[in-house]
């Protein structure tokens, strides 16, 4: 799952100065030319400090989103309504853990250790996708997350397979393959529920009502309030603007909802023949920014779950390290 770049008021790294670094103009020009020619930048290549910083922030946010994103779905794992659904959901969450690991590794190639990134998540300095700060209330939410949240993630991630930073782009290729499975599985859950009993239909519609707007927010602030977009696009860290991707998502998803006989909770939603796409209502940006600030409905639960797991597991990680040291001493002797 993807998180768009969220400014947190801090770069999440301790060592970097807040003063804008003045880069060597010749190196910068060569870098810009390579990126403009769609070449991949690799870990050992020279890169402007701002490029490195933006990427660490974006990739680590993406990694954190995968890891925190395990929680809302994990909430239904023990209550999955069939053994097949349980196995599919467990495998899906496992994929997310795997995505988290590749992404942390991709971010580590830029020189920030994983523990430092995790610390930034726990302290609230680093952000993760706003979407995971909403609760999963019924089994239909598991369908809605796959359909809408993974669907939005795919819209964001497909272009990132061509992002300029090689390790990130390559991680995205694998992530995208798995996400499209997830999206289909989620839609399949919704299909069964939307064609099921009255109680199931109610859950399906209610899940769409609750997840629709937060899903649109996943694409980040509107282009006119997204100050980094222009530079990130030039550097091929982003390949499409937030609003372009949001529009694409709406255009693809509305017919899918119609097919399920579910209604999108937006009175202003209307097909616009001229632009060959849907017009849709105003997003509640106050809510979005509140969630970015860490004021989402279950933000406290999510961070507490992560910090508890980390702190309660400290003795295990320490024991593994001490044991490995004992082994290598034995092997050396």
């Amino acid at each position: 799952m993807y998180t768009t770049e969220l400014k947190s008021g801090s770069d999440g790294g301790k060592k970097r100065s807040k003063v804008e670094i003045v880069e060597d103009p010749a190196k910068l020009a060569a870098f810009e030319a390579r990126v403009a020619a769609d070449e991949f930048i690799e870990a050992k290549d020279w890169m402007p400090e701002a490029y490195r910083k933006t990427l660490v922030r974006q990739i680590s946010q993406h990694a954190h989103s995968e890891i925190v994103g395990m929680l809302p779905e994990g909430n239904w794992l023990r209550r999955a309504p069939s053994l097949k659904r349980k196995a599919i959901l467990l495998a899906k969450i496992q994929d997310e853990a795997g995505h988290g690991l590749y992404l942390y590794s991709a971010a580590e190639t830029l020189g920030t250790p994983r523990d430092e990134m995790i610390e930034a998540l726990h302290s609230g300095k680093a952000k993760y996708s706003t979407i995971f700060n909403y609760p999963t209330l019924t089994w239909a939410d598991i369908g809605a997350i796959g359909w809408l949240v993974d669907g939005a993630a795919i819209m964001n991630q497909v272009p990132l397979q061509r992002t300029s930073y090689g390790p990130y782009a390559r991680a995205m290729v694998r992530v995208c393959k798995e996400e499209s499975f997830h999206q289909r599985q989620g839609y399949e859950i919704m299909t069964v529920m939307a064609n099921g009993t009255d109680a199931q239909k109610r859950m399906a519609q209610d899940a769409l009502n609750r997840w629709w707007w937060p899903s649109l927010m996943m694409f980040g602030p509107p282009d006119d309030s997204s100050p980094n977009t222009e530079r990130s696009m030039r550097w091929r860290i982003k390949r499409d603007t937030n609003d372009e991707l949001r529009q694409l998502f709406v255009d693809v998803t509305v017919p899918q909802a119609e097919y399920l006989n579910l209604s999108i909770p937006d009175a202003d939603l209307k097909f616009n023949k001229e632009k060959d796409g849907y017009d849709f209502g105003e997003i509640d940006w106050d809510e979005f920014y509140a969630v970015v600030r860490g004021e989402g409905p279950v933000a406290k639960e999510r961070i507490k779950a992560r910090t508890d797991a980390w702190e309660e597991g400290a003795w295990v990680r320490e024991a593994a390290m001490v044991h490995a040291q004992k082994q290598s001493k034995k092997d050396a002797a």
Partner: peptide, 11 residues
């Protein structure tokens, strides 16, 4: 799931 001592152990 989601609560293990490390992501590797979670997996």
């Amino acid at each position: 799931c989601g609560h293990a001592p490390s992501t590797e152990i979670d997996l």
